[in-house]
Design a protein around this nucleic acid. Sequence first.
DNA 1: ATTTAGCACTCTACACCTGAGAGTGCTAAT
DNA 2: ATTAGCACTCTCAGGTGTAGAGTGCTAAAT
Lengths: 335, 335
Amino acid sequence: MDVRKRRVLEVIIDDYIATAEPVGSRTLVRKYGLGVSPATIRNEMADLEELGFLEQPHTSAGRIPSDKGYRFYVDEIMRPAILDNFERERIRHAYQMRAREVHWFIHQTARLVSELTQYPSLVVAPPLEQATLSELSFLLLGPDAVLMVLRTSAGMVENQTLMVPDEFDAEKLAVLAQDFTREFRGVNIRELKDRILDPLQGDINRYQELWQLALKWVTGRDGDEDKVSLAGPLNILNYPEFHDVEKVRRVLGFLEKETAVALVSRYFREGVQVVIGAESSLDDIQDCSFVTATYHVGGNVVGHLLVLGPKRMHYNRVTSIVEAVSEELSRALQS
Amino acid sequence: MDVRKRRVLEVIIDDYIATAEPVGSRTLVRKYGLGVSPATIRNEMADLEELGFLEQPHTSAGRIPSDKGYRFYVDEIMRPAILDNFERERIRHAYQMRAREVHWFIHQTARLVSELTQYPSLVVAPPLEQATLSELSFLLLGPDAVLMVLRTSAGMVENQTLMVPDEFDAEKLAVLAQDFTREFRGVNIRELKDRILDPLQGDINRYQELWQLALKWVTGRDGDEDKVSLAGPLNILNYPEFHDVEKVRRVLGFLEKETAVALVSRYFREGVQVVIGAESSLDDIQDCSFVTATYHVGGNVVGHLLVLGPKRMHYNRVTSIVEAVSEELSRALQS
DNA sequence: ATTTAGCACTCTACACCTGAGAGTGCTAAT
DNA sequence: ATTAGCACTCTCAGGTGTAGAGTGCTAAAT
């Protein structure tokens, strides 16, 4: 794998990313001034094909990169993209002037990323189970409804109205909230479930129905709607590989299902990850790539974001953007 | 327009709705047992075409309904669809077991409608300006954050965290909320804006910054995200008229923009409305139809829902569903 | 006066063919 | 090791031909 082969592979991939057309030897030398003749490039290309980095759609088309080719490009060749000032400012100011709602953070992030990358973007909120309780409050809304407000250690606020079977007055609720907070401050929210449902818990069980309602929200799938934010799904329509409606259906369907969330959790590792084509064994997105990143609060990974695009994705731009955004998001969450 | 012509038009439209293929005279008599020969039908079809109810894509294809044809069908021919028990149960139980959040109601409605109709559905929440204030509360979240909870006359609850510049303690906030509620209970929320920003308002102006933040939410576009809920956009991919990606982009793009909301407000009239093709002068959805309905609280129209589909939409099913759902929703909101 | 059989006509969809163009691989010369 | 030359391959766009579906018209039948 000498330096010229690297260079040839690089320009082939660059060109294919830009045009979505198989790349031929003639075009290549003309466009990129490689200083050798097409024939030489042809030999190089034949070698690269033998090595598994390139493929031919058919005998007399140009070459396109294989998954392995993209992989090599991502790992060894590409250099990080440099974001322009406008983009950096966008990212820097994305989280100003607004309060601590998980919902808002992930929504904002998804939009930001999809607009910068021009690919669909999915952001997964920190699972509540990872947080610990900081304070619980209730606000009486009416004879049978209560607003429950939960603050977590990370300073996040979640709230939800609950229908309650009994009548609670404001005083009772205040006591209840205080008791609860005193008892469970600092407890992991996943643990809460077991502890609260423990029938030996005595006095607190008086309000079991209320707790159960609360828990259904805290631990249940109910929150899932808010737990994931998808932005820019229609961006994929801009890329010619998605001019087939069947493909569009598969990919958008994938993004709207929980599968996508499960996927993100799978590629869980910290930092920025690139997954190319068949590397993910998900049928629906066999000819897509995606980039995932994690974001953090207090040193712990709390959530993920994902950018999905065609295999000829602008890997360097996307990784740079995703990295910058996840850093900024982590910073915003920290404060 | 004798009775046979009506019948012919009816079966043509039924068939075209079912198959999306131009309908020919032979097929028609075979499939629907009309008791006359194809030649007779041809004559009828020629008449119907002359009357403007049918069109020919080209000389030797069958006929397809024109906008005017659909209009006649919707207004004069079709009978309301009868929903089966399962569907009626779905609708009846859609709003049980959950509390008073606008967000949830419209989300639930949109999903319900799109699942029942198999078309994309959009639900617009009651504009806050139409509601009047019932009670305002604050909950202190931290040194610089406050949860603002607004209850409206319709019993809806909206809340939002606000970043506040000064420090407020719980007591101050309680007083503030009480003052505010006393002062403005029953006031139309749109009016609130003018009143509050009036510099003669005296004491309350001490907390002007807080009010302004609150108002930014109440009146601003910030809430818009939550004010509209779209469900089932990918349903349109199931219909052959959307096998062209350009069309898909236009239609889905339309649904995701605020244009759609403006549109719904335009077809504001109470009850169920059907708009066919070019009747809406919106380029992006020239070859779509949509059905809108209103829902109510206390006799007032408060919000809208919309179902968008191809012109050969199942008008009778959709209108029946949309009617049943909007009634149920109104009932749920009333209670 | 309607209805219908018959028939000529029209138009599309599809299969097939063809030539141009782009690209390759190989070989021989540099 | 590189490159010019050339024969070869494959796609794509355009053109042709045919089968099939559907129409409109006319004249006969009811």
